[in-house]
Amino acid sequence: MFTHVTLGANDLEASHKFYDAVLGALGHQPGTLSEAPMPGVWYMTPRGMLGVVKPRDGQAACHANGGTIGFFASSPEAVVAFAEAGVAAGGTAIEDPAGPRNSPFGVVHLAYLRDPAGNKICAVHRPG
């Protein structure tokens, strides 16, 4: 559905460390740092791309209130690894601890974090 998602960051070094850790816990390769034309860190998969960038307008990055980006996790253990890697890399665990939750779609395994810039992300595993 999506080709890419970008998040704003004020400290690319901290964001690079954080996203390498959380996405690495989900099995993705480290990000590629780009200086131009848009300074940022890019994570590519065959199905899409995540960019963590300095805002083009030169203003400070800020997070969306109510916005969340969810990352696919292949197992409940990957959800927990995502949460642990994120906290160890400078993120903040938010909401309930990583693990199973009841939802309108059945039981899902979730972990919610704030990245170093305050963006809200989560890892999601939906048992088959």
Rank of each mutant, 00 (worst) to 15 (best):
88 A>M: 07
35 E>K: 14
53 V>I: 15
8 G>R: 08
102 N>E: 15
82 F>R: 00
119 N>D: 03
18 F>P: 06
9 A>R: 04
69 I>G: 02
119 N>T: 04
96 D>P: 01
60 A>M: 10
92 T>W: 01
15 S>M: 07
86 G>K: 05
94 I>R: 04
54 K>I: 15
2 F>E: 10
123 A>Y: 04
73 A>M: 09
27 G>F: 05
49 M>I: 07
106 G>H: 03
3 T>G: 12
19 Y>W: 05
87 V>T: 06
18 F>C: 03
59 Q>A: 12
66 G>W: 06
2 F>Q: 05
24 G>E: 02
125 H>V: 00
124 V>F: 11
126 R>E: 15
119 N>Y: 04
75 S>M: 04
96 D>Y: 14
18 F>M: 12
106 G>Y: 14
94 I>G: 05
115 D>H: 08
41 V>W: 13
6 T>S: 14
62 C>H: 14
47 R>H: 10
52 V>N: 05
44 M>I: 08
38 M>I: 13
100 P>Q: 08
94 I>Y: 02
96 D>I: 01
19 Y>L: 13
14 A>G: 07
105 F>V: 02
71 F>R: 08
17 K>Q: 11
21 A>Y: 04
105 F>E: 11
46 P>A: 02
72 F>L: 10
45 T>V: 04
5 V>P: 00
72 F>G: 05
85 A>W: 03
7 L>A: 00
5 V>Q: 05
5 V>R: 05
29 Q>E: 14
99 G>Q: 06
15 S>V: 04
69 I>Q: 01
106 G>S: 04
86 G>T: 05
6 T>E: 10
4 H>W: 07
18 F>I: 08
103 S>N: 02
77 E>F: 00
34 S>E: 10
113 L>T: 12
127 P>K: 06
41 V>I: 15
